[in-house]
Design a protein around this nucleic acid. Sequence first.
DNA 1: GGCTGTCGCAACATTAATGGTTACGACAGA
DNA 2: TCTGTCGTAACCATTAATGTTGCGACAGCC
Lengths: 154, 154
Amino acid sequence: MERCDQEEESVSANSRLTIAAHALAWIGHYQRLGHEVATSEQIASSANTNPVVIRRLLGDLRRAGLVESRRGAGAGWSLARELESITLLEVYEAVETGPLFAMHRAAPDQGCVVGHGIQPAMQGIYDGIEGTLRRELSGVTLENVLRDVLAVPR
Amino acid sequence: MERCDQEEESVSANSRLTIAAHALAWIGHYQRLGHEVATSEQIASSANTNPVVIRRLLGDLRRAGLVESRRGAGAGWSLARELESITLLEVYEAVETGPLFAMHRAAPDQGCVVGHGIQPAMQGIYDGIEGTLRRELSGVTLENVLRDVLAVPR
DNA sequence: GGCTGTCGCAACATTAATGGTTACGACAGA
DNA sequence: TCTGTCGTAACCATTAATGTTGCGACAGCC
């Protein structure tokens, strides 16, 4: 598979949510063209990555009940649910692991008033932010995503 | 410096915002007790980390105009502004680098309709989410944080 | 029954961010 | 001059994400 190098400054964050949305939109679009299943090879070609990466990601989505896979001849992936019913929140929860912001690696000094109170204080703030993030993500369906994708001018 | 291992499942995300808030709250609280400056050694002891890590982080905050440092004898760190006027958004922008969610590492296949439209589509969604995140962060001041910290029961 | 294409998964390499550690010069007050 | 602390470079360790290869499992088809 050819690598199409593009000079990006310094990609740090994880692109798992982006690639997962790409894969779901691709499968949904492909099925609307009349095809039964999509292969990891086809999706990887569109996303410019390795088929195994796609299979790993789709494996997470299958565990979440969003897609199904068939083995044997004529194998491939298909949606387990309609694009309209899948939200970015479900995709996010299927592919993202930890919290947005982490606490200290080692517990702060509990003998210090600041060290003692900082984790509960920040946790309360972070919980509120993650709740807002989830509300935002739950307001976007994969149908919305595919519509936006197809609306981009060539 | 002793390492106080605490069994966390799998800390992945970055704790830079947490540590920065800890440091600012510590300096602010210390100054209210009548002290002029705080040393990276003291802050590191409270946060249970290395003084150099604190100096690096406070260096970012100084570049953002949130703290000042003094050198020579009686050296240390002090707030450049009141805790009430510093928001978590300013701290976030001072210490966090990239976007919350990243795009593909290599550009997707532009010859595919999905590959062509996926990045603009997701970017629009991500921009909205980051805007919401920033609004949330801008609504919390370091004064709020310190108050929450001191309100935690012993 | 064998052939074929694809998934499932393990194993390993690569890259990048983060954090921990040591070292040492610069600085400024006592 | 002495001392304590900052400023910063250099290096190592750890972790997550990603890329890659290999191969067995599976199921339809000939």
